[in-house]
Design a protein around this nucleic acid. Structure first.
Length: 722
DNA sequence: GTGATGAACCAACCT
DNA sequence: GGTTCATCAC
């Protein structure tokens, strides 16, 4: 069998990993070392050389994007459809198992998935029912608590309820579980935990999957949490080989329960694990790599890995100290424009990375002003938009009348005369009789005189609307069904009722939803045991979709450091490297969290292939107030020799130098900071506002006290410090 | 019961 | 700076 196409593109270390004998393997793969390539080639190797069938393979990742890429690449290598191969995210695969075995899992057949927002609303509802003071017990905190417990594999009965604090938390957790049960919904963490419990309690199922999945492959292992680790240990039986890939230096999800120790634990739990290291970097210049290595070397408890490259030294890392965040954005945009215009770089090859989503705004404004196409990743995603979730809530209710979370969302959207009083009466009845809101509402409508006539009529109309929609759209395909729902419910009219731009956007989103439904029905492979509607709703919850719909253009890419993991760009701007912002002020106290911030910086630096430009702002408007920033410690932790400070202080050179070439030596005559007070012989005193260019041709803008703002050619202006 | 207005809160982000 | 939520006038 000719496997040269599998082996030839690999370097010796990669080859060793791909062709390792059967058995457990842990591949410690540094940034840009060809991690995904090793994983996909290993999968193909197992099928083509070791005689496995795709049916024997289970490949797990964290994001849908990574899963889709992995599947595509394996199928390409195998030259046949990888049908029968299970490739997906932890949550996606768990969902699949639960759909197939809903009875064993103790779930209703049509169970639905709650996203984080749905979950928060439900926790809030439960807390109100329990009369828990939301000021003392913030909803988000309880939500976080519940998820953390589930991620650790703990149910309410596993908790220590000795003190009042724990008792209260456990009480909410218990009530939340019961609300989920009666509504037939599961949250993300529940997908994992429920699957684990199902396999533990049904040994025949466990045996079946263990016999089937002889080869388990896991990507980004450093991001696994407790329950995901349990999940893997269950599904990979004693006869299975587990091949995991990870990088402890890129563990950046500790704050949501990821346990980097799982890498070590794996070595202990799986005896005879072959440990392999991929340390040759193919991505970055040696300058960029050395900077990354120096930075990350400060962290303690690393598994130890030193990346090296045969690549060129490349250009130094540029550092720009901006006056404020507008100046920072101006610098970034001017630089990237120059790269596009002068070097013919594609816009999509340039990324602007930042610590938090809120920072994107200034860059968007600067790009917009210069009419440069850009694309922001992250932020509110398509299926998370309010109007989309409203539409989906109708579908959820049609699929399952007991979905009380969906009912609460839309019972009065659009407004139909069912206000808080009526809803409160429904809740009360539901609690009393221990039934869903739907059942309680039906009871109230049927018993004359319980509700005021007007409220009863409105409520009856609502119940009939939903039943009617369900009945008359049952035979329609998904897109037509949605169309019917949008029209008959009045949601479309409600959403587009004013003629604002926002309302137009929302209408377009609803149209886009119909398009999404149509293409889902045509293209998606619907899993066994699921009707199309349920499958579409699960798809919406599990894959929230990109933030921006529309055609792929050649766009500058904006995203947070977290979402940049796994990607690479020829040019990277790393913005906002200030103490308090990055590292985030919440993280500097605890050494562990600071190290995670440093890993995040490491991830950012190693995204760059050719050029890395770092910026920070000396002043920044944060939470509505002006704050002074100093350069991030991460800048100071880079080797100074690799950094070229662009214009922390810009130099103004005298007229003599104007005619001479660079070789003649440009003599800086003065340096000014933006914001500094200067003196001009004719215009008097003023403040430096801006500067364009550098050297003899630099122009400088000064806001003079007497005559206002003026642009001056710095070389001839003879400015002096005031 | 509805819709507008202002205070309070929040801010990493994938499933 | 934006969004959500409570409050208030109608």
């Amino acid at each position: 069998m000719d496997v040269s196409d599998l082996i030839d593109p690999l370097n010796p270390a990669q080859r060793e990993a791909v062709t390792a004998p059967l058995g457990h393997a842990l591949v410690l793969a540094g940034a840009g070392s060809g991690k995904t390539r090793v994983l996909t080639h290993r999968a193909a190797w197992l099928v083509r050389v070791e005689g496995a069938t795709p049916w024997n393979l289970l490949a797990v990742t964290f994001t849908n994007k990574a899963a889709a890429e992995m599947r595509g690449r394996i199928e390409q290598l195998l030259g046949l459809s990888g049908s029968g191969m299970w490739v997906g995210t932890f949550h996606g695969l768990s969902h699949r198992l639960l759909r197939l075995h809903w009875q064993e899992a103790g779930l209703p057949q049509g169970f639905q998935i709650l996203d984080s927002e749905d979950q928060r609303r439900l926790v809030k509802r439960v807390m109100r029912d329990l009369e828990v003071d939301e000021n003392r017990w913030p909803v988000r905190q309880l939500q976080g608590f519940i998820n953390a417990r589930k991620d650790a594999g703990e149910r309410p009965e596993d908790l220590d309820t000795g003190d009042p604090y724990s008792g209260q938390m456990a009480r909410v957790y218990t009530a939340y579980e019961s609300a989920c049960r009666s509504a037939g919904v599961v949250d993300f963490a529940e997908l994992m935990l429920r699957t684990v419990e199902m396999l533990q309690n049904h040994l025949e199922l466990l045996g079946h999957y263990r016999r089937r999945f002889r080869h388990v492959l896991v990507d980004e292992f450093q991001d696994t949490n407790g329950i995901q680790y349990e999940w893997l240990k269950l599904l990979a039986g004693p006869e299975s080989d587990v091949f995991i890939v990870g990088d402890d230096d890129q563990s950046i999800y500790g704050w949501r329960g990821a346990r980097v120790e799982n890498l070590q634990r794996f070595r202990e739990d799986y005896s005879n694990t072959r440990v392999l290291r991929l340390e040759q970097n193919y991505r970055s210049t040696s300058t960029i790599l050395e900077a990354a290595n120096t930075l990350i070397a400060r962290n303690s408890d690393r598994l130890g890995k030193k990346l090296w490259t045969e690549g060129e030294q490349g250009e130094p890392i540029a550092l720009y100290a901006a006056f404020n965040e507008q100046d920072e954005a101006r610098f970034v945009v001017e630089r990237l424009m120059a790269m596009v215009e002068e070097y013919g770089l594609a816009r999509r090859d340039i990324a602007i990375l930042y610590r938090s989503n809120a920072q994107s705004r200034t860059f968007e404004e600067a790009l917009l002003a210069r009419r440069i196409p850009y694309r922001v990743y992250g932020g509110l995603r398509f299926f998370e938009r309010a109007e989309i979730k409203d539409a989906l809530a109708y579908l959820r209710l049609i699929a399952n009348r007991d979905d009380s979370a969906a009912l609460e969302r839309i019972i009065n959207t659009p407004t139909r005369g069912i206000g808080n009083r009526t809803l409160e009466a429904i809740r009360l009845a539901a609690r009393d009789q221990d039934v869903s809101l739907w059942a309680a509402a039906r009871g109230l409508v049927e018993n004359r005189g319980v509700l005021p006539a007007r409220a009863a009529n409105s409520l009856r109309a609502f119940l009939e609307l939903i039943d009617g929609l369900a009945a008359e759209s049952a035979d329609l395909d998904l897109a037509d069904r949605l169309e019917t729902v949008l029209e008959r419910s009045g949601l479309r009219g409600h959403v587009g009722k004013d003629r604002s731009e926002r309302a137009q956007d929302k209408l377009e989103n609803l149209d886009e939803l119909i398009t999404a439904a149509r293409s889902f029905e045509q293209d998606a492979t619907i899993e066994e045991g699921m009707d199309t509607l349920t499958a579409f709703l699960a798809h919406a919850a599990l894959e929230a979709g990109e933030g921006q719909a529309g055609a792929w253009e050649d766009c500058v890419q904006l995203m947070t450091l977290h979402s940049a993991k796994g990607l690479e760009f020829p040019v990277v701007f790393l913005a906002g490297l200030e103490e308090g912002l990055f590292p985030h002020r919440m993280s500097v106290e605890e050494p562990g969290r600071l190290e995670e911030e440093r890993r995040l910086a490491y991830v950012g630096i190693t995204r760059a292939r050719q050029r890395l430009l770092i910026t920070y702002a000396e002043r920044r408007r944060l939470h509505g107030r002006d704050e002074f920033g100093i350069a991030s410690r991460f800048i100071r932790e880079l080797p100074p020799g690799l950094i070229d400070e662009v214009r922390a202080r810009f130099s103004v050179t005298g007229p003599d130098a104007a005619g001479g070439g660079l070789g003649d030596g440009v003599i800086p005559e003065a340096e000014f900071n933006l914001g500094e007070r200067v003196q001009h012989s004719r215009f008097g005193e003023g403040v430096v506002l801006d500067c364009e260019g550098s050297g003899p041709n630099a122009r400088i803008q000064v806001n003079f006290d007497e005559v206002g703002a003026k642009w001056l050619v710095a070389a001839y202006a003879n400015l002096e410090r005031a």
